[in-house]
């Protein structure tokens, strides 16, 4: 059983590595935020697997914190990120995308 937990955790870690590409490439802030959401969900799953593997119950509490954190961060970002773009400068990359599609 230990082998299965470890293999699944390694696989989820590979998912995080792949998601890192989306964080770095963008193109818009919303995309990066989505990839951070992926980190949160995947991290929660990894923590559940670790708690099974080591039998440490504290990891489940940490998984709970990760689950909570994802929601709060998303709300904060859409609120403040909006303000950041509304006042003055527009997002150069998102306008580029919009121009390409027209």
């Amino acid at each position: 059983m230990m082998l299965i937990y470890q293999l699944a955790a390694l696989f989820l870690m590979l998912n995080i590595v792949a998601g890192m590409a989306r964080v770095l490439r963008g193109p818009t802030t919303a995309d990066r935020l989505l990839a951070v959401q992926l980190f949160g969900t995947t991290g929660t799953a990894i923590l559940i697997l670790f708690s099974l593997q080591t039998g440490n119950k504290a990891f489940q509490d940490l998984a709970l914190i990760f689950a909570l954190l994802a929601g709060i961060l998303g709300v904060t970002f859409t609120r403040y990120g909006q303000a950041w773009y509304k006042q003055g400068a527009t997002d150069p990359e998102s306008t580029k995308v919009a121009a390409k599609e027209k």
Partner: peptide
């Protein structure tokens, strides 16, 4: 703003690293 997003991702990953170091 993108820097902040990446910093938050970094924070989540550091938390995972602490878990691997057996320090929940």
């Amino acid at each position: 703003l993108h820097g902040v997003v990446i910093f938050i991702a970094f924070g989540l990953l550091v938390a995972l690293a602490w878990v691997r170091l057996q320090a929940p």
